[in-house]
Amino acid sequence: MEKRVTFKGWLLPICLLLPQVIVTAVFFFYPAGQAVWQSLFIPDPFGLKSQFVGLGNFEFLLGDPYYRAAFTTTAVFSILVTVASLGMALFLAVLADRLIKGSGVYRTLLIWPYAVAPAVAGVLWLFMFNTRVGVVSWYLGILGYDWNHVLNEAEAMGLVVAASSWGRVSYNFLFFLAGLQAIPKSVIEAAAIDGARFWTRFRTIVFPLLSPTTFFLLVVNIVYAFFETFGVIHTITSGGPQQATTILVYKVFADGFVGQDLGSSAAQSVILLVVVGLLTVIQFKFIERRVHY
């Protein structure tokens, strides 16, 4: 039976709910409402008056090749980040799961990157790959590879993907490890006796049984890649070179706060919100049905 707390009267429950409601209202509903409102206007160059344009901002955006490019960039970026961080985390979790002793130490060490703020993580990776003083780029130079993410678009993308995935690996690792440890040992042993070697067992037993965890992480990581990677991109590439790493959320910032086109920026926020909402709904509709056994 579900435990229910019953309150006498209204005052206490309202007081308990109020902080959360206020926070949500002030930091989510109010700005979201403002974004929707602003997306219908174009401010004049001095920001003194705005002119109502209806859906004009949206119309302009959808026809704008730069904006469409940002869509593609976002898709590429989030797929890479999700695949890299999930793949790496799963790999590490499988290794840690096989350990009997010392897995606690690995778990502790592997969770640390999660505690590093995205901007700090960005700076960290930037230092390692800095074209002049970076350790990694220096070694790459010795190996004869001329690393320059400031000019090379693919390298820039690779670097922001790596920096964004790095922090997520910890988080995903914890979930995967918990998921792996929830699989009864005897099921794996039964498969081994049935003739399945490690890789076959992984493919036919472990991975399917892990699918609810994987699905959950997929949703969470895509949302992360869409929104929370702003700090990493801002510190490492600032969206460059030639907008090669300008994902949607970065463009909202760049157009709104740097370009001062608040109307367009607001319209982009609205689109972004709708896209992520849709993605999540689609994921739940299509995949969730298949992951339960």
Binding site: P184, S186, E189, A190, A191, G195, I205
Partner: peptide, 15 residues
């Protein structure tokens, strides 16, 4: 897998 045995577990260990 190379011993050609089969085992029945207490919790059945079905997939």
């Amino acid at each position: 897998m190379d011993r050609n045995i089969a085992m029945v577990f207490q919790n059945y260990a079905l997939y």
